[in-house]
């Protein structure tokens, strides 16, 4: 019984790591696709602003598709792409792409807890 557990645990752990890596790769791909789809010169120049803060004037100047995601994360404080998708009624993969785009732009922070990625507005250090 114990031997069986040892034999099955290791492959499962390896598979979980592979799945996590694939998930991360997938998210990066989604961001690249999304930036290619919606990106324009203004957006590109807005990427990674050193003083990026998610205040209402920033929200107003955002493109509609990103504003919807940003508004949802403002309401949730701390959420996964799936939770944001529940609020915006858009697909999880789409929200994941937009959230990652907001992370790249410097408006959100991202942290991993186990297999889940959480996004949040860092109000203490931003700005």
């Amino acid at each position: 019984m114990i031997k069986d557990e040892i034999l099955t645990k290791k492959p499962i752990a390896i598979l979980e790591k592979i799945e996590e890596s694939l998930e991360r790769l997938n998210q990066k791909m989604e961001v690249i696709i999304e930036i290619q789809k919606n990106g324009n010169d203004n957006q590109r120049s807005a990427l990674a602003l050193p003083d990026a803060s998610l205040d209402v004037m920033t929200l107003l100047s955002m493109p509609d598709h990103l504003r919807k995601t940003a508004m949802a994360i403002c309401r949730c404080v701390h959420a996964t792409a799936e939770e944001i998708a529940g609020q915006t009624s858009r697909a999880r993969a789409v929200e994941s792409a937009y959230l990652n785009q907001l992370v790249i732009m410097g408006y959100l922070k991202k942290e991993r807890k186990g297999r889940k990625a959480y996004f949040y507005v860092d109000r203490e250090t931003q700005g």
Binding site: L54, D55, V56, C74, V77, R123, G127
Partner: peptide, 14 residues
């Protein structure tokens, strides 16, 4: 108040 403060104020209102 600056933008950073206004952003925090929004968080407090929410």
């Amino acid at each position: 108040k600056d933008r950073k403060w206004e952003m925090r104020a929004l968080g407090r209102l929410l």
